[in-house]
């Protein structure tokens, strides 16, 4: 009974993680502009990984593999958002006509506004 319950829970978690990751892939192919694509993929990344690996951990049960999976989660949570951040920053640095895709604040104006507040 307990085993079955555990299996069902693990399956539900894995399926939820799969759903999130499929959403991310869909967004990756649906959007045209790179920053939109990063938005779709990197946000879903962390949640999808968490759900998938939590399902795996439940399936393993009490095992040292669970600790390793925790380490994997920590590693991916540290690295994946940072890499998306770097890609986004590179796009902002390199793209000259950024204002074709979005509203861009003039850095000078932002600075003046801040100084005005202070």
């Amino acid at each position: 009974m307990m085993d079955q319950l555990r299996f069902i829970l693990a399956a539900v978690l894995t399926c939820a993680g799969l759903f999130v990751l499929v959403t991310a892939v869909l967004g990756l192919f649906r959007f045209r502009y790179s920053l939109n694509r990063i938005h779709a993929s990197s946000l879903a990344d962390t949640l999808g990984i968490l759900l998938m690996l939590a399902g795996l951990m439940l399936a393993f049960g009490a095992d040292t593999a669970v600790l390793k999976l925790l380490a994997v989660i920590a590693f991916l949570w540290l690295t994946s958002p940072v890499s998306s951040h770097l890609i986004g920053r590179l796009e902002v640095t390199v793209n000259d006509d950024l204002d074709r895709y979005m509203k861009v604040d003039d850095p000078e104006a932002v600075r003046r506004e801040k100084e005005g507040d202070a």
């Binding site: 940072v82 951040h85 770097l86 920053r89 590179l90 640095t93 390199v94």
Partner: peptide, 9 residues
């Protein structure tokens, strides 16, 4: 072409 001295990274 590279973000310089990125604090987060």
């Amino acid at each position: 072409y590279e973000p310089k001295d990125d604090l987060i990274l």
